[in-house]
């Protein structure tokens, strides 16, 4: 019963953190931009009508509210269904994992919307003047070599541990996990290269802001890599030592940690008052 109570507390925390608290912070941030950097003074920030930004914000808010209440409802249903279960009896299998993936959908849609916004900004940018910093962007300027080494060590630690508990037999599950890990890290490497040498998405972004964003992105990816390896190790251990009832707790903690360091990290690190919004003002010649 205590495990169930712990799970409900963690799952409630997952629902509130990812589908209520962080969306609320993001909405607050969007409102802050609309209020302090209006289209009349910062036209380059709004390649389309600001009404579209407001509409997108409303859709994002609604989607999170639906997911929030769905999460509470699911929790209620599972609580009723598992009322008589023992502590070591599996229940709510897959719930935090599946629900966690659903919770991240609004954030992914917001990201896609942001990329579309940047594309429109690039299309609308008629300026003939282009700026760039003369400082090279190198990986270890943004993340410590130690953290990268630790992330790599953890990857191999997971692979070794998974093989160890399976007597070094390459089962199909292990192969699938290794392939998934390689794909995820392949994606991270691609994103890292794009961050360091690729074109900037926002054509007006100041060099200092790009540097800060790059630093956050890279540090975030290293953190996620480490947590992913730890999560996989924990899941393999739980499976091997027949502690499957702990799986739901580990899954819920994992999603909350990812949200804390990902979304939460972005909100804490990239503050609106630190961003140079003057780059979005109209060119003097056009005023």
């Amino acid at each position: 019963m205590s495990i169930h109570i712990l799970f409900y507390a963690l799952f409630l925390s997952q629902i509130i953190l990812i589908s209520y608290y962080y969306p609320k912070q993001i909405i607050k941030r969007i409102d802050g931009v609309l209020k302090n950097y209006p289209p009349e003074d910062y036209p380059k920030l709004y390649p389309e009508s600001p009404d579209k930004v407001i509409a997108a914000k409303a859709r994002y808010q609604l989607l999170n509210q639906i997911i929030f209440f769905a999460g509470l409802a699911l929790m209620g249903v599972y609580a009723l269904m598992s009322a008589g279960y023992d502590d070591n009896q599996k229940f709510a299998e897959g719930l935090p994992l599946m629900f966690g993936m659903v919770q991240f959908i609004p954030f992914m849609l917001l990201e896609i919307s942001g990329c579309r916004q940047f594309k429109l900004m690039r299309k609308a940018n008629k300026s003939t003047s282009r700026s760039a910093g003369l400082a090279p962007r190198k990986l270890f300027d943004y993340v410590s070599p130690l953290s990268v080494i630790l992330a790599v060590v953890l990857i191999f630690a997971f692979i070794f541990f998974d093989l160890y508990i399976n007597d070094f037999v390459f089962t199909s599950d292990i192969i699938i996990r290794i392939i998934a890990l390689c794909l995820v890290h392949g994606l991270f490497i691609g994103l890292t290269i794009k961050q360091l040498t690729g074109k900037r998405l926002d054509p007006h972004q100041a060099v200092k802001d790009r540097s800060q964003q790059t630093e956050f992105s890279l540090q975030s990816m290293v953190s996620v890599s480490m947590f992913l390896s730890l999560f996989l190790i924990a899941n393999s251990a739980v499976e091997f030592y027949q502690l499957s009832y702990l799986e739901i707790i580990i899954n819920s903690i994992y999603f909350q940690v990812i949200a804390f360091f990902g979304i939460g990290g972005m909100l804490r690190t990239i503050r609106l008052d630190n961003i140079n919004f003057d780059v979005y003002r109209a060119d003097k010649a056009n005023v």
Binding site: R130, S131, A132, G133, L134, A135, P136, R137, L196, T197, G198, K199, R200
Partner: peptide
């Protein structure tokens, strides 16, 4: 920028300046 300072790679500068 001073003697010994590193400069961006050709690819980075080309992408930054489009």
């Amino acid at each position: 920028i001073k003697p010994g300072d590193s400069l961006p790679s050709i690819r980075q500068l080309a992408n930054d300046l489009e």
